[in-house]
Design a protein around this nucleic acid. Sequence first.
DNA 1: ATAAACCTTGACGTAACGTTAAGGTCAATA
DNA 2: TATTGACCTTAACGTTACGTCAAGGTTTAT
Lengths: 259, 259
Amino acid sequence: MEYTVGDLAKLAGVSTRTLRYYDQIGLLKPAGINASGYRIYGPAEVDKLQQILFYKSLDVDLERMKEILNSPTFDKAAALREHRQKLLAKKAQLDLLIANVEKSIAAIEGRITMSDKEKFEGFKKELIRKNEDQYGAEARQKYGNEAVDASNAKVAAMTKEEWEKLTGLEKEMKENLKIAFNKGDPACAEAQKAADLHRQWLCFFWPSYSKEAHAGVAQMYVDDPRFTAYYDKEQPGLAAFLRDAIFIYTGKQRNTRNS
Amino acid sequence: MEYTVGDLAKLAGVSTRTLRYYDQIGLLKPAGINASGYRIYGPAEVDKLQQILFYKSLDVDLERMKEILNSPTFDKAAALREHRQKLLAKKAQLDLLIANVEKSIAAIEGRITMSDKEKFEGFKKELIRKNEDQYGAEARQKYGNEAVDASNAKVAAMTKEEWEKLTGLEKEMKENLKIAFNKGDPACAEAQKAADLHRQWLCFFWPSYSKEAHAGVAQMYVDDPRFTAYYDKEQPGLAAFLRDAIFIYTGKQRNTRNS
DNA sequence: ATAAACCTTGACGTAACGTTAAGGTCAATA
DNA sequence: TATTGACCTTAACGTTACGTCAAGGTTTAT
């Protein structure tokens, strides 16, 4: 398969100017030149252009590409594996930026206040990474705090309205639940109100509501430690109490379940 | 808080030249100039610079930034949410590139032969995306919600025995996942084992398995705060790592993997 | 009071092309 | 056969987002 500049350009999605420039700087010379002075590229050049575009997507400058691609010890597979690693690193960096954005959204909405220093942390890390990228260092990944903040900030990714409604629902539910818990009766008005609010909360996530599913979730709050911990944190026994209230709300019989 | 160019530059991790340039082109004017002609920046400028750096990380050119930031209808929170969407889109694009790299490695190792056209597909898609990015097309992420919510409903309806089987699977998956996470490679054996266990876990609920749905759920683990919080609680970054592993797993599914 | 460490405004350099400009080549058509 | 239009060529200046001196004024610390 032989290509002229235009053919290869179209194939690769780059401009003909780009190919001529690569020829000019000696990055990608055509396989030959025909009688009328046209550049002719072969399959080897297609492969090399692919390599070039890969590296380009990584922001490797053309000078460095020449070094890499002209190296006699150049192992394609190894280069691609390295490339993959870099792409993954880039993605990790993106995660960091996303976390920062989400944090900023939260800040604007008044839930968190960020110090001026904090505002730039994501970008500073990016600078460091770029440096490391450029000079081939492979050390990285200790973004502990940021990642934790990221997961917190995920909540911020919801629209403001969603967030407010959700937190409002949850807060109201908990208030009712605590009052009911102190009364000790999962059938009392407050407990049933809490169960109803919990249903609304669930409906926020679920496309369709069913009593059975609702009861199932309530049971899971007791069986699954991650949920139990959440509810029992403020008031031990609250998870089980909520389950009882929901069982009554959904009409499920209180049978022999332990915990 | 008042800053001179050097102060702000240090804070933001940019050069003083950059700040003078932004002043020059009217992108970021200082709050004022003191008696000796020094530029003085205030908190509003810190915020604006942050916005600028956000957009810069997206390859938005400075001219467009002026339009965006000087727009009277400019809503910071909305802009950030849009920004976040773009970052997520960029990440999706990275996933595409990674898939392409994986494919190329396979091709080099003789498992597949790629046509010349195929070799450039990833890059062409990138071009399209860049265009869409530039001209304000919106994000489109449709998959995930229904599937995940459906699975939640099923979890809720489960018996305790089923639940225990499930948690067993999950525990084993997590063990593999943590080992893999420490290695840092979502393509390594443990990570892929974890992805496979995760598939089994999913098959517990799903009537039919599909790679696309699997990948969709993996993405949800990162997008949905409920899941992210769960995975990242023990090991920050784990949700994203699991997603990456699953993306590789679902992309490589064709290569004789059994279980 | 003098150096170090800031700040100022030019002004030229750069990477990786985009964009004319001015012209040669090739296949198909009037 | 001549011309059109889509190719190709080299040459050269333009662009973006700064980096990098240069030449000089200001502030702070000793």
